[in-house]
């Protein structure tokens, strides 16, 4: 009896998970298959699979829109922002974690308090600040905002991780007369790779997906990021659903593939901070 009850319960659980999986995946499946359909096919038989795999939509997106440009902009802006976040926060975290100096805890406090600030709400002064510096509607302005947003939690993670590294390595290198720069660069930082990966993913995903800051800060079509470009694109092709689904599929593709390969790192990177 007990075994049978257990089987029923487990069956119910599997059913719940299966229904949820369908709700999560089916819309994405329809998005992908619709991108191979013609408009007429989507409207007349939205639920069926495409009768033949037409790449006409793909060609249209590639040649008639600025899509490739938006994609390249997103790659460049995300890469530059993440690189600078890693560099700046590792340096600062290294100073706080590995040296004793008078203002050390105050400096750490300053960085940590930045974690509680919703920078979106400071967008007006931020906009004015960037305007004064001539950085509105430029890559650099957007990148600096992302770097500022990423530094606090990155410093927090890097400081925490760098503190756990053993002293002995550092000491013996010092005995051998290695410079501080060399100790940091060739001995300590290679050990910090796991933390660097977490920080990179934690920042890359929201920056890649961000819409708010480009919306406010970028106006030239040639500088627009992918999420922002999508709104332009949707405005142009309102009734051409085949092209719209293709654009959405292409926009979702890079991060989805990366997520499937690195799902563990993605999940721990994004939920980091909420699961302590």
């Amino acid at each position: 009896m007990r075994d049978r009850g257990e089987t029923i319960r487990n069956g119910a659980i599997q059913l719940l998970l299966a229904v949820n999986a369908v709700i999560m995946v089916y819309p994405l499946f329809v998005m992908v298959t619709s991108s191979f359909k013609t408009n007429a096919e989507i409207f007349s038989s939205p639920l069926s699979l495409p009768t033949h795999f037409s790449t006409a939509n793909l060609e249209k997106v590639w040649t008639e829109t600025n899509f490739v440009r938006y994609l390249a902009n997103s790659v460049g802006i995300t890469a530059a922002s993440v690189a600078l976040i890693l560099l700046f926060s590792t340096l600062a975290g290294y100073a706080i974690a590995r040296y004793r100096f008078r203002l050390s805890s105050l400096v750490l406090m300053f960085f940590l308090s930045g974690m509680t600030v919703p920078l979106k709400l400071a967008i007006i002064p931020l906009f004015i600040q960037l305007d004064t510096l001539g950085l509105v509607d430029s890559y650099l302005g957007l990148v600096l905002v992302y770097v500022a947003m990423g530094i606090p939690s990155a410093v927090f993670i890097m400081t925490g991780f760098l503190r756990t590294l053993p002293r002995e390595l550092e000491e013996s290198a010092r005995m051998d007369g290695a410079s501080e720069l060399r100790i940091m660069w060739s001995i300590m930082l290679p050990l910090a790779r796991p933390a660097l990966v977490i920080v990179a993913i934690q920042n890359a995903v929201p920056i890649w997906n961000d819409f708010f800051f480009p919306l406010v800060l970028i106006t030239s079509d040639n500088l627009k990021t992918l999420p922002q470009g999508l709104t332009v694109f949707v405005g142009e092709f309102t009734t051409d659903w085949g092209v719209l689904f293709t654009g959405l599929t292409l926009a979702a593709l890079p991060i989805t593939l990366l997520y499937i390969v690195l799902s563990k790192q993605f999940i721990s990177g994004i939920t980091q901070g909420a699961v302590k």
């Binding site: 995946v25 939205p46 997906n209 659903w241 959405l248 926009a251 991060i255 989805t256």
Partner: peptide, 30 residues
């Protein structure tokens, strides 16, 4: 199932919003 339930989280809200806007279309939406 863990990987599946987290999949939409990594997508941009812009993609998700437009996708559901199409799906919720009164006549042709999914």
């Amino acid at each position: 199932h863990q990987v599946i339930v987290f999949l939409p989280v990594v997508l941009s809200a812009v993609i998700v919003g437009f996708l559901w806007k199409l799906f919720l279309h009164p006549l042709f939406g999914l």
